[in-house]
Nucleic acid binder design. Sequence first.
DNA 1: ATTATCTATAGATCTATAGATAATGC
DNA 2: ATTATCTATAGATCTATAGATAATGC
Lengths: 202, 202
Amino acid sequence: MRSGPKTLTSKILVAEANRETVINVANRLFRERGFDGIGLKDLMKGAGLTQGGFYKQFESKDDLAALASRRAMESATRRWFSVAASSPDPLQAVINLYLSRGHRGETGDGCPLVALGSDAARQSPDVRKPFQDGIKAHLQVLEELMAIKDHDEAAHKAMAALSLMVGAVTLSRILTDQKLSDRLLEAAAAEVKRIAASEQDD
Amino acid sequence: MRSGPKTLTSKILVAEANRETVINVANRLFRERGFDGIGLKDLMKGAGLTQGGFYKQFESKDDLAALASRRAMESATRRWFSVAASSPDPLQAVINLYLSRGHRGETGDGCPLVALGSDAARQSPDVRKPFQDGIKAHLQVLEELMAIKDHDEAAHKAMAALSLMVGAVTLSRILTDQKLSDRLLEAAAAEVKRIAASEQDD
DNA sequence: ATTATCTATAGATCTATAGATAATGC
DNA sequence: ATTATCTATAGATCTATAGATAATGC
């Protein structure tokens, strides 16, 4: 579907690579510092560029926020898929990945819903959309892991499990009392397993 | 413990009232727009003052953020206490308050953990402390509402319940798909009740 | 000739400070 | 005389734009 002339490839390839780099840098820095916590100058510097070129690549900071959020959510979904697919106990594998001290410390590379959840709720629809799509994708992964036949019931369980997981890591990052933070992650892990295992409801 | 001379009372009272107003305005505006989303000029204007007086009242913006966060968390805890105390079904009352469409829409007056959770994780220890204290207070309220004798077990259940509740409202605010957002709140409410009612564990 | 990226800058806003003003209490 | 609050400003940073530069392809 590339409709441009073949003659400009090399230049275009560099430009595309730069654009990718900027999105990837933003992907990390937005999670580390929040959408309002990092300026375009530092974002571009992180990609080895100057701020002047930004608006030839992106419409606005909001545009970049939406692109970076989409990439972050898609990468997070892929990670869930891959750890679940490569383990004999997929739910335990996702729990080990997500409700871990490692994930708690990975602010720049961890789940965007944790790193930017309350920020995301204040953003424009364009930025919230990729988060919503990512939430739906995460729910689908979790739904598969619920030990429940009924589809509606499994969907409900998945929503509760995702809320619990996102909330637990968010709270664990706020707490400076590390023992409490650890116990909270453990309690959440145990409860996610109970939710997934539970049969009866209503 | 007021050690100052009685003679300056009226002036001091006005100053104290202004200080309170600024903290209350900040309390609301930080939740609505995030710590980085509102400047001191607009904060002071919201209290009917000019920005110049700010530093005679507060050490820094961070100082105000800590004070406003403490006030917000304490107010949220009090609300839980009071709805629980005044209802024959305290857990249901807290759930009705928290996992509701009303709370989802109340960004400026709702739970600070939802409005500022991911922001809080990036703040200084001085700002995170009031959040931590508030989390502990919320956990104590929930612990009382768990249908479990064993203290450790009730504490675990409370941590899972709080994580689930905070996560659910956070996700529900991100979602633009209102039907999904509603179902998520309902699923969370049902699961909190199951967590509180569950007997066996481990 | 085209175009990605650069330097430079506009204009607004940010946190923080300095010193003027005005209101109260002696 | 004291002091809360004001106006004014410093100096840094923010998003966004304009026009120069340099590298590639014709």
